[in-house]
Amino acid sequence: MKIDEAIQDVQRAETELAKRLRLTGERHAVEHDLFHLGHTLARKCGEHLDRLATVAGKYGVQAESAPAAESPGLLETARHKASELLGRSEMTGMLLLRDLRELYLRAQEAEITWVILMQAAKACRDTELLEIATQCHSETELCGKWLRTRIKETSPQVLAVG
């Protein structure tokens, strides 16, 4: 049985996704929705890891926890600065689109690692793991859908203007 591998893949993918969500949110903090939702969804990744930790030990895998967020006060200051500097340039659009695309791929990766884990859980008749994986999977899938929506809205303005 190699379920430990699948669990570690999920851990890696969710950790990476959380990091990217925060990074993108902060780099594009003038896109206020990205900033807020990026942090909310990164927190969700952390919750996923915590839930997985409750069963990981059974398969000999060490618990992982997501990297912590910074304090909102600090970010607020950074955001204002960024808004003045970066936010007024049209080049931010291309950068934004590229970062969103990258983030979307991270979300897709995390999503498929959950699918793999779900399949393994089914075959091993581990209902506890299956329940966790199913719920986390649907949340991760939503993260991808959200990014898809955001990318569809952003690309016309970035690419068709000028």
């Binding site: 003038v30 206020h32 808004s83």
Partner: peptide, 11 residues
């Protein structure tokens, strides 16, 4: 809010 963001970035 998005319209204003586009105005802010200049598009």
């Amino acid at each position: 809010m998005q319209i204003l963001r586009y105005a802010e970035e200049g598009s």
